[in-house]
Design a protein around this nucleic acid. Structure first.
Lengths: 130, 130
DNA sequence: CGGTATCCTGGGCGATACTG
DNA sequence: CAGTATCGCCCAGGATACCG
């Protein structure tokens, strides 16, 4: 079923991203930048406000939503610390840990190719503006 | 700078996703489900309407936007075929080709773990509804 | 065939205030 | 500290029509 590492193509019919493809709903849930960044930061257990400080530009509301979704999908675990005032610590589950590898490859790719992409954007914009 | 395959953490200060982190704008551009699916389908050069048929649920408008963005970022190339009526073929650039590998790992991961995720969702929902 | 152009609506998100 | 609650805006995206 794999051939080049992506979805397969069988002999006659192309494998397509039909509504019932199992990857569809999952990509819906995890393929967004904040989720990826949160997962990246959770190398170690981390408190809510530390995450917020690390994710410049995110609002409390969106961070909460992102964390809840990741928790629902089994990627992270939420631990309430018996401190006063209450503290909450987020950590990766084994499932979430296993996702860090593919995410890591993608992150590394973005860093490696950021110059090339920016230069492509400039070239495209120059073409369009003209 | 790499340690576990994601962004590094140095001795004292945590590396964070500040606004000037080069990965931020790139994740904004490519970390969305339609972009990932289009890249997956472009194993071979493909016509606009064939892409549209393969991406059940996408609208023409959104597919066009997705393709333009990928083109601007240097991932795909747009070729107008000298046919009548006009045909347009989309194909991967070398840069886009290089992105298929990390995307492929992620796609494979979603397929491998779809059951586990769904079961986690059910457990979470049961917990919340109660 | 492969797109624009235009209109319109829902809900995603920011801002703010409040709480255990 | 780590959230919920509420309001209001804006614009991403659907629907439809038209075009080279």
């Amino acid at each position: 079923m794999k051939d080049t590492g992506l979805h397969g193509v069988d002999a006659e019919t192309r494998m397509v991203f039909r509504a019932d493809c199992p990857s569809r709903p999952i990509l819906d849930q995890i393929a967004d930048k904040w989720s990826m960044m949160v997962m990246a930061l959770l190398e170690r257990p981390t408190r809510f406000n530390e995450l917020k400080r690390s994710l410049e530009g995110i609002t409390q509301r969106v961070l909460t939503q992102t964390l809840r979704r990741l928790e629902r999908n089994g990627m992270i675990h939420r631990t309430v610390l018996p401190t006063s005032p209450v503290g909450v610590e987020y950590s990766l589950t084994p499932l979430g840990e296993s996702l860090r590898e593919p995410f890591g490859h993608l992150y590394d790719w973005t860093v490696e190719h950021s110059e090339e992409i920016q230069s492509s954007q400039r070239a495209y914009d120059a073409r369009v503006d003209a």
